[in-house]
Design a protein around this nucleic acid. Structure first.
Length: 610
DNA sequence: ACGATAATCG
């Protein structure tokens, strides 16, 4: 109904009379006040609002003489004082205001009001109802399209996916113009909530309904698929879209390089790189970051450095991401000197290190047990106005735990909680394993039980830590119970198996230890250096040294690196059996491979000579 | 729309 029609009707039905002014008259009065002096008089002399009703509100809001901005302040005033005016703003008031705001292109404000509608249980309703409230006289032809479009976005922002798709259905059915940009927002929302399948499905619908797809939408769907490890499906989608004329760009390609890089599929990585060359898509700084990650994480730091150099030579501007990455990898591979040189270089180039950058350095000095250096970095970071976050706190606590400084770690936990940062699943794991290392098993277990009581869901690492504690206590019953429960939810990994295998090997229960190794291999969970070292240790002490030697050779065949611990176990086994020649041969081999023998090795060798 | 920091095993 138009304003004119409405006012005519009101005038006919409610003739004005001095004792009780009509709705129309009150609305006029309020409007005049708003126009001449704004909101103030209504706030100070609120008598005008004593007989307010939804009709009057509507009349004021739709009065073309009242500026949209004044309508908005009036609306907000009523909303703030809903109890006082005993008037709840109804859906029509919202729609009317939105329409006024659209008239003056106040899109952000429109969106705010729509957000109020969809988040209010009393206002939320199907899109068709909202549309039906739009005045016939609204002479903005695209208003309905715009309103629906915005509604879809607002639903997406609120993760109300069914409703968002409902708006899409409605717009499609009624032939409204759907903006790709809004669909894109919905795709991103799906992705953020890990609803990759819905994201993919909705993208399909976009394609079917003839919306002009952009490379942005395509890339975000592909990225969702890749993040779930479905790289092949991503490739298929890209192929299909290329046939439809959509050109992938550097970001699309980066997504694939990253996905292949994460699974160490160098064939895949190179395939994408040559596709980029063929399409003449130049690398950007993110491409280099991904390549550096990919090579460095395979232990090829020289190659990673070469990419970093190539990037600089090509004049591609380094940013704080790529610096953080290369700094982090140099740290992890023990090149602390190079890491700090890069850190200086970053600053010299006018870039600003952030929490990630400091996090990489702090993490690595903590791992090396250099807590004094870590504290210096923390101070430097704070002096630059960067606040400690949860990751840094956890990192520091882990550092203190590794040095056995439990009191320091627990003190930090208190500081962290005082700062309003939650003790999360990482914190609990760190403290529990720290306590476990000091043989404070009861406290360690209590820590993990507290975690569950506080509603923090345990993950594979937490449960592995718990299994480790039970194994160290020799309580294999409980260890096995937790382990079998893991089959249902958080799946065991190599470390989980290692904890059990270590426990059994240490107690000489070699049959069970070997059975577990077979089981993990059957499941495709790869034994690593730790698995073998535990077994070798067990066989050397309790079993057959020849069995240990077999495992030792198996490691070499599988390309697993033996550590000082592995050698020590092997050497002590051989010495114990009086096979000194073989023991000394291994000792030489160990030194040749660059390992520094520790006291235990000497002890074994010497004791074997007796 | 892509890329960087945290946890377990003598």
């Amino acid at each position: 109904m138009s304003t004119q029609k409405l006012s005519k009707t009101l005038k006919k039905n409610l003739p004005s009379n001095a004792a009780s002014p009509s709705n129309q008259e009150i609305a006029e009065k309020i409007s005049e006040t708003l126009i001449s002096s704004g909101l103030k008089p209504l706030q100070t002399v609120p008598s005008l609002l004593s007989s307010l009703n939804s009709h009057i509100t509507h009349l004021v809001l739709s009065n073309p003489h009242v500026q949209p901005r004044s309508c908005l302040s009036f609306f907000n005033f009523l909303r703030r004082n809903e109890s006082f005016t005993s008037q709840k703003l109804d859906l029509r008031a919202h729609v009317t205001l939105i329409s006024r705001l659209y008239g003056s292109r106040k899109f952000a404000e429109m969106k705010n009001i729509l957000n109020c509608v969809v988040t209010d249980d009393n206002l939320r309703c199907p899109v068709s109802i909202i549309v039906s409230l739009i005045e016939d006289g609204c002479n903005e032809p695209k208003f309905v399209d715009k309103l629906c479009d915005m509604l879809m976005r607002v639903y997406a922002d609120n993760r109300m996916f069914e409703e968002a798709v409902g708006v899409f259905d409605y717009m499609e059915k009624n032939g409204f113009e759907i903006e790709e940009r809004s669909c894109f927002v919905l795709l991103l929302a799906f992705k953020r909530c890990d609803q990759v399948e819905s994201c993919f499905g909705f993208f399909r619908r976009m394609v079917e309904s003839g919306i002009e797809i952009t490379v942005y939408s395509m890339t975000s769907v592909i990225n969702g698929l890749c993040k779930r490890g479905e790289v092949e499906r991503g490739r298929e989608l890209m192929g299909e879209m290329v046939d439809r004329g959509i050109k992938p760009n550097v970001i699309t390609y980066n997504t694939f390089v990253n996905a292949y890089g994460e699974r160490k599929d160098f064939v895949g990585v190179n395939e994408i790189l040559s596709l980029m060359e063929k399409d003449q898509v130049a690398y950007n700084v993110a491409t280099y970051t991904i390549l550096i990650e990919c090579y460095a994480s395979s232990g090829k730091i020289e190659e990673a450095e070469r990419f970093f150099e190539e990037m600089n030579n090509k004049g591609i501007k380094a940013d704080v991401h790529v610096y953080t990455s290369i700094i982090s990898w140099n740290c992890r591979l023990g090149n602390m000197k190079r890491a700090f040189a890069l850190f200086d270089e970053l600053t010299e180039r006018g870039l600003v290190p952030n929490v990630h950058t400091y996090g990489a350095l702090i993490n690595n000095v903590c791992k090396a047990g250099q807590m004094e250096a870590a504290e210096m970095l923390v101070n430097e970071m704070q002096s630059k106005g960067l606040d400690l976050n949860q990751v840094i706190f956890n990192t520091l606590m882990d550092g203190y735990c590794k040095r056995g400084m439990m009191d320091e770690a627990l003190r930090l936990q208190v500081v962290m909680e005082k700062k309003g940062l939650e003790t999360d699943v990482f914190t609990y794991s760190i403290i529990a394993s720290g306590l476990c290392k000091l043989n404070r098993h009861e406290e360690a277990k209590r820590m993990l039980f507290t975690m569950v009581e506080r509603g923090v869901a345990p993950n594979t690492v937490t449960l592995t830590t718990l299994i480790d504690i039970y194994c160290k206590e020799g309580n294999f019953e409980e260890a096995k119970r937790v382990f079998s429960e893991m089959e249902k939810g958080e799946k065991p990994n190599t470390v989980t198996y290692n904890a059990l295998i270590y426990g059994y090997s240490k107690k000489g229960k070699m049959k069970e230890a070997h059975r577990l190794k077979d089981e993990m291999e059957d499941k495709g969970i790869l034994p690593d250096t730790y698995t073998y070292t535990s077994l070798i240790h067990g066989e050397s002490v309790y079993g057959k040294v020849d069995e240990a030697l077999k495992l030792f050779d198996e490691m070499s065949r599988k390309g697993l690196v033996q550590t000082v611990v592995t050698y020590t176990a092997m050497i002590s086994g051989l010495s114990r059996e009086g096979r000194s020649d073989e023991a000394f041969r291994l000792y030489d081999e160990m030194k040749k491979s660059g390992l520094t023998p520790d006291d235990r090795v000497y002890y074994s060798l010497v004791s074997g000579l007796h």
